[in-house]
Amino acid sequence: MASAQDLAASFNRTAASIESARGGLDANLAGRALEANDLSANVARLNMEIRTARANGSEPNDLMDARTVARDALAALTGAQPVPDGAGNISMVLPGGAALVTGDRSARLDTLPDPLNRGHTIVRLDGTAGSPPVALAAAQLGGSMRGDLDARDGALKTALDQVDQLAFDLGNALNAVHRSGVGADGSTGSDLFTIAATAAGAASTIQVSAAVAANPQSLAASTVAAGLPGGGDNAQRLIDVESASLSNGRNASATLGALVSGYGSETRSARATSDADTLLAQNVQSLREAASGVSIDDELIDLTRSQRAYEAALKVITTADEMMDSLLRLRG
């Protein structure tokens, strides 16, 4: 009985841990959506200010720098790409083609629970032109938000689905054996576990049947009533379920091993991809910095060169002045 309760509690804890991790990613998404909204509004406002400044005949370098910072942060969060237009604006377009920023107008990202995904957050785009909100699939986003969605609905969901399936298969297999046995109180035909009707959510809800938990004498350890009270052959059959094939063709032990290996592989692969992408981003950033960044050494050299030219020009003027002065004195 204690082992059955441990098994159910282990499934419950594992499912709760995975769901908690997925819930943490939901919280991340909500925070990132708010941040993305601020950045989108910033880019739109800076577009307008830059246009105004240029109309007044000045070149607003500070505003352009600020827009570049906001643009990069927005791209890192959402994967939105900058698209310049002829008027000096930068629009920000999501990988799916939806516009986050168009000129001086910005759209908003909302997060709300999705009943089709256990209440986990869905990201929605509130358009800029009065169009109705549109739900965004993971493929229509990029950056950190895409990463959150991929982790939540990728490796973690796969692991949760597999744990659910294992709980469902194992629980039902144990129930089938338990139903065919007889308890010390003579009861028979009862389930050992209460399990959901489908695999979805089975790990989080599996419990030792209330009737068996309340009356341990109903634990069907014997295959026949005549074997009571000492018959333990059905208990042995319950143990043997561990070695029996489940719906995936593997036994429970191999299924658990494959689940852990699969999750580890997927996580490792994601880490490797992340490391490679980080390196790629660093290289691209280096190229951009090399082209447009500021090197203090370069600037100092330019400054020194300019100072030297200025000093040379001064020297020419001083020399010419002295020559003119000498000529004037000769005439006098």
């Binding site: 143990i239 561990e242 032990s253 191999a254 658990l256 091993g257 494959a258 689940l259 852990v260 290996s261 699969g262 999750y263 580890g264 592989s265 996580t267 490792r268 880490r271």
Partner: peptide, 25 residues
């Protein structure tokens, strides 16, 4: 320490732990 440290070994470890429990029983 984590499944992603060595995925194949982590899976084998789980099976090994289950086998240990079974053989201990």
């Amino acid at each position: 320490q984590h499944p992603w440290d060595a995925p194949a070994a982590a899976g084998q470890l789980v099976r090994s732990q289950l086998n240990q429990a079974r053989m201990t029983t």
